[in-house]
Design a protein around this nucleic acid. Structure first.
Length: 768
DNA sequence: CAGTGAGCGAGCTTCCGCTTGACTT
């Protein structure tokens, strides 16, 4: 007989709690939800008040079986799942599936894992909150109805296997809308004027500082005029303003802010962040990593203060507790923090160490004093003009939390320098060293990264900490969105420079628009988005989740019946699905671009079986239409007639080599030149439309010498084993598998025995 | 692994939120 059986959601949590409780407690975990709606069909009986049909999924049968038998031998079962809507529902499903009875079951909650909190929880047990459970059922049923009615509609009208849902469709919409904003964006030109001054009489260059004109100039004309005025002006300090400035640390990490900072500071994808954090959690180094709370336990605040005192002194200690602002936060856990604040670093892989240090620093900083700065603005008058130059400087008076941590931002860094200024007073004369007017363009909106999309979703209250990373993966898997780098473009800018008595003018080129790891909508993403927007405006509305959440809250309060709430949503929604099924055309995103000047036939683009294509002629024509795939980076929405026609210029023959044709084309893996039925990739800056014979031959010869250098060594006794030179250096290839060569070994001198040893070692490692 | 794009149709796809492994590279 077991005295007490405690069930929590996570096995790592179970282990920790078991340590805090005495021998009379056994702690087990449910591994999250143990039941879900049936997967076949809807899993909901629409005609019986939306009665859910719950099933235990195959991969949960084992857990359920074990818990059931343990529960039957237990005197008391404590359901200690999380204190939120989902946790309450898990407790209820456990109650139902394990066949528990009310007398021997208690519901308890704790949102921090400390001995005190657990003890308090045991003393304050309650029963399952049915209203909260109903709110969860409403949430679950609504999501199933939306997802399982909209997705099949997309299969019929657009393409099989597509998906739509309350969360993912809005995530895609954010990306589509951002892309359209960027397309419509027209940069405005202006001139920014910067000057370098120094106090009159000071040794050249030593005390010089930069100042910026307080006004942007509209045109080249204006910039010329202004610099001419400057040439004949003298400069004087007008006013010196000093302001104290205080900066407060950011709150400790939640899932969303951890993903953002790990992306900005460490370059991690949201998936990577979550899997590294999971390992840290499982090895007991950090608290739970899926949380929307910025709360820290009293214990953590105390140990952080002690740590700060020890490292930096009392002056740096400032204990505070933060409150959560994000929409729909349920705060079942603490913020993400180190389990032991006294551990500033850990053992583990490099990525684990880096993420841990980030978490440690952020947590510590959140309990440290404000930083104090003094901001100085110096206004400088120009004798011949009204405009003024402003120089700003920041001096750190007390570093406070900045000693360990500074939050990063998504905005591109401005090149404005803020540093120390020389000591200046009103009326001081200044000498100009150089004044520069540089042509600038206003910046287009910034595309989302994975992490900044999570930030936006959190602001809108869409998705939960446990779903941010999976949602981002889903929209990429469905090919609604791609994460890509895009090369920048170049443009010419004018730079005017006043040096001595001379104003020079120079045209320079500037790179802009380079994107790294940004999210772009695909054509299919755009088509699905527009289809849903047109027919299901309410679900695509950014406030949809917020407004249903409000109703879920009312259900949780017991003021609203869940099935009637669903009824009110479902009836109009379902009839919309039906009417759309009947009336809307099957859409392939077809778009007519114009006429082909050569044949006079229409040129159009659409989504074909294998992706976006351009087409000359129509299917009904006597002669079959010609097709060509769009290139990476092109889209149905923006492609021009000229660009589409260019696609048909390939493949083209550019000459011959060794008696055979050289054919240039673009395949699935990019531009290539084909020769004797072998393919050679073109280099990045080769344009397949203009490349000529000589360059094509050069590419082929290059590739051949590379191949010759590929083979380093081979053994007669083992003909299947090669030592090769690859992209990442030398390696051993054996039976279609590759093996790394230890750095201290010279690949050319390896013996067969040594190679076999390397393969054996690698084999035994992967089995572990 | 790189020139694809007809048309028919069986059987399948799909949601969000809570948890980990079991996989492969």
């Amino acid at each position: 007989m077991i005295e007490n059986l405690v069930i929590v959601e996570s096995p790592a949590k179970a282990k920790t709690i078991e340590r805090f409780l005495g021998k009379s407690y056994m702690v087990k975990s449910s591994f999250g939800h143990i039941r879900d709606l049936a997967k076949k069909n809807l899993g909901i009986d629409i005609e019986s008040d939306f009665a859910p049909q719950y099933m235990v999924p195959a991969d949960k049968k084992k857990v359920v079986k074990e818990l059931k038998s343990l529960a039957s031998e237990s005197k008391m079962v404590w359901l200690a799942t999380d204190e939120d809507r989902e946790g309450e529902a898990i407790a209820w499903h456990l109650f139902e599936v394990l066949g528990l009875d009310r007398e021997n079951t208690r519901r308890i909650v704790f949102h921090e894992i400390t001995k005190d909190a657990i003890q308090r929880a045991l003393e304050n047990s309650r029963h399952i909150d049915d209203h909260l459970v109903n709110a969860q059922q409403a949430r679950r049923v609504l999501d199933r109805l939306v997802g399982f009615e909209l997705s099949p509609l997309l299969w019929k009208k657009i393409k099989p296997s597509l998906s739509a849902g309350r969360v993912q469709s809005v995530a895609v919409k954010l990306i589509v809308e951002k892309e359209r904003e960027i397309q419509q964006f027209k940069p405005k030109k202006y001139f920014r004027v910067q000057a370098t001054f120094s106090p009159t009489g000071s040794p050249e260059g030593q005390l010089s500082f930069k100042a910026e004109l307080n006004k942007r100039l509209e045109s080249l004309e204006e910039a010329r005029k202004f610099l001419a005025l400057c040439r004949d002006s003298h400069f004087q300090v007008d006013q010196v303003e000093k302001k104290p400035l205080k900066k407060a640390p950011a709150p400790p990490f939640t899932t969303s802010t951890l993903q953002q900072e790990a992306s900005r500071k460490l370059g991690f994808s949201v998936n990577q962040t979550m899997s590294v954090a999971q390992r840290l959690y499982e090895s007991g180094k950090i608290t739970y990593m899926r949380t929307d709370s910025v709360n820290l336990s009293k214990l953590a605040i105390g140990t952080a203060a002690a740590q700060i005192r020890k490292l930096f002194g009392e002056k740096y200690v400032k204990s505070r507790n933060f409150t959560t602002k994000s929409k729909g936060a349920q705060e079942a856990h603490e913020a993400i923090r180190p389990t032991y604040m006294e551990q500033s670093s850990i053992e583990g892989s490099r990525t684990e160490q880096r993420l841990y240090e980030l978490i440690w620093k952020r947590t510590l900083a959140s309990q440290m004093s404000q930083a104090e700065l003094e901001k100085t603005s110096v206004h400088i008058s120009v004798s011949q003009a009204r405009e003024k130059f402003v120089a700003s400087g920041e001096v750190l008076i007390f570093d406070g939390f900045l000693k360990v941590y500074m939050e990063s931002s998504d905005e591109e860094q401005s090149d404005e320098q803020k540093g120390r200024l020389p000591v200046l007073q009103s009326q001081d004369e200044l000498q100009r060293e150089v004044i520069e007017a540089t042509e600038k363009h206003t910046m287009q909106p910034t595309r989302y990264t994975e992490a900044s999309l999570v930030k936006k979703m959190e602001e809108l209250g869409i998705g939960r900490p446990s779903t941010y990373a999976p949602t981002i993966s889903t929209v990429q898997q469905r090919e609604y969105v791609v994460k890509e780098d895009r090369p920048g473009k170049q443009r010419e800018i004018q730079v005017l420079k006043l040096l001595g008595e001379h104003v020079g003018e120079e045209a320079m080129t500037e790179n802009y628009g380079f994107e790294k790891g940004k999210l772009f909508p695909t054509d299919i993403g755009i088509i699905v988005n527009d289809f849903l927007e047109q027919n299901f405006e309410n679900i695509m509305n950014f406030n949809f989740t917020a407004s249903v959440e409000k109703e879920f809250d009312e259900i949780a309060e017991g003021q609203l019946n869940w099935s009637s709430m669903i009824e009110r949503f479902y009836r109009p929604f379902h009839s919309r699905v039906e009417s759309t099924t009947e009336t809307s055309e099957r859409t392939k995103g077809e778009k007519l671009l114009g006429k082909d000047p050569a044949s006079g036939k229409p040129v159009s683009v659409k989504i074909g079986r294998f992706g976006p294509i351009a087409q000359i002629g129509e299917a009904s024509d006597e002669e079959k239409p010609r097709f060509a795939s769009l290139l990476k980076g092109q889209s149905l929405e923006t492609i021009s007639l000229e660009e589409a026609l260019d696609l048909f210029r390939l493949p083209r023959t550019v000459g011959e080599f060794e008696g055979e044709e050289l054919v240039v084309g673009i395949g699935r893996y990019g531009p290539y030149v084909r020769h004797k039925s072998k393919f050679f990739s073109l280099a990045k800056n080769d344009d397949p439309l203009t490349i000529e014979q000589d360059r094509a031959i050069e590419i082929i010869v290059e590739k051949r010498t590379q191949e010759q250098n590929r083979n380093i060594k081979q053994f007669d006794e083992e003909p299947g084993l090669f030592i090769l030179n690859g992209r990442y250096g030398p390696y051993i290839s054996f039976q279609k598998k590759n093996y790394r060569i230890p750095k201290n070994k010279n690949p050319e001198e390896l013996s067969l025995e040594e190679c076999r040893e390397i393969i054996r070692k690698a084999g035994s490692r992967s089995k572990k």
